[in-house]
Amino acid sequence: MEPLVPPGRYSTSNGSVDTELVSRTVYTILAVIMGVMSVTGILLNVLVIVVTVKNRQLRQPLNYALVNLAICDLGCALFGGVPTTVTSAMGYFSLGRVGCVLEGFAVSFFGIASLCTIAVISVERYIVVCFPMGAVEFQTRHAVAGVVLSWVWSFVWNTPPLFGWGSYELEGIKLSCAPNWYSRDVGNMSYIILYFSLCFAVPFSIIMVSYSRLLWTLHQVTKLQVSEAGSTNRVGKQVARMVVVMVLAFLLTWLPYAAMALAVIMDSTLYIDPLIATIPVYLAKSSTVYNPIIYIFMNKKFRGCASTVLCGRNPWNTESQMPECETTVGSIIKSQRVSPKESLKD
């Protein structure tokens, strides 16, 4: 298979590359960074899956979505992070045209499924916190439906380039492939606009609306003063901090990439330095490490189960178990035996 040599670089008759977009040192640094992220992401997400399978008490509705997120991130790390590590170490994309299309499809497929799964998680947390009396209940069937929908949605919108509507091309410093944001072809533009709107804008809007409403509900709950002095406010602040971390991590990993894609879509003459354009790509792929830490390992119950699997004991077993954020806030409202609407009034 012939190597896919990006524009601005030239190969000699024996396949070596004469001109590089960046220095050899930069390629090496990028290879190390992506290698560390890939290995860490693989280990963390495999651990999430193994721990959940081994512990029946973790098989709750929310955890179906969390495990699905781990599977998505594992796929991104294996089919996106590992190949990019190899091409970075080599200094050029060596997988050929077919390899570019397959890598672009795999990363986009798992990446969009991951985004949709995060949207499902945000909706679940919104429902549990904002409707603690059971008026709206997030059950196993809802979690399974959300997981299935995330895969179907991603598959539907990532397969068209395989059949000619849209395409996958090299991006950044030409070490990995993604949907072709740059082509002005009418067919490609129509696909990219729909792809961006339905695969980035829709999940992003769901996540922001759900967490914004959740934070507003927490703000109202802290006014109830229904438990011992200061405890309600303390719980509210703890949950609010966790939600803020989730939102900031999501914005850090995905917003730069989405913003760059949108800018290119809107202005075909826009020039972005290849090295600068590579930064959002690496940030997006770093989500394979951040997601299991933020969404799963911040949960004390899961940390205890993971410790038991790895070390044979749970170091948190002797401490009073911190209730999960959803249960804690729900119990505060339930303790007053009032409806959610009444409890959230000023």
Rank of each mutant, 00 (worst) to 15 (best):
M1K: 14
V5F: 13
P6F: 10
P6G: 13
P7V: 12
S13C: 09
G15A: 06
S16W: 04
S16K: 13
D18E: 13
E20Y: 15
L21V: 10
S23D: 12
R24Q: 09
I29Q: 07
V32H: 01
V32E: 00
I33P: 00
I33T: 04
G35R: 01
V36W: 02
L43W: 05
N45C: 01
I49E: 00
V50F: 05
T52V: 09
K54P: 00
R56C: 00
Q57V: 06
P61Q: 00
P61M: 00
L74V: 03
L74C: 04
G75K: 04
A77V: 03
L78H: 01
G80C: 04
G81Y: 10
F93L: 02
S108F: 07
S114K: 11
T117H: 04
I121P: 05
R125I: 05
R125F: 09
V129Q: 02
A135P: 00
A135F: 11
V136W: 11
T140K: 14
R141I: 06
R141E: 05
G146S: 04
V148W: 00
W151Q: 00
S154R: 05
F155I: 00
P161S: 07
F163I: 05
S167K: 11
K174A: 14
L175S: 04
L175W: 05
C177T: 08
A178P: 01
W181P: 01
S183V: 06
D185M: 06
D185G: 13
G187L: 07
Y191H: 06
I193C: 04
Y195D: 02
V202H: 01
V209D: 00
S212I: 00
S212Q: 05
Q220K: 15
L224T: 07
L224M: 13
A229K: 15
T232E: 15
T232H: 04
K237M: 09
Q238S: 11
A240S: 15
A240T: 15
R241F: 13
V244I: 14
V244A: 10
L248I: 14
L248Y: 08
P256W: 04
A259E: 03
M260V: 11
M260S: 10
L262D: 08
I265M: 11
D267S: 12
S268Q: 12
T269W: 07
Y271E: 12
V281I: 15
Y282P: 00
Y282D: 05
K285I: 09
N291E: 00
I293N: 03
I293M: 13
Y295I: 04
N299D: 15
F302Y: 13
N314G: 07
C325A: 15
T327W: 08
V329T: 15
S339D: 13
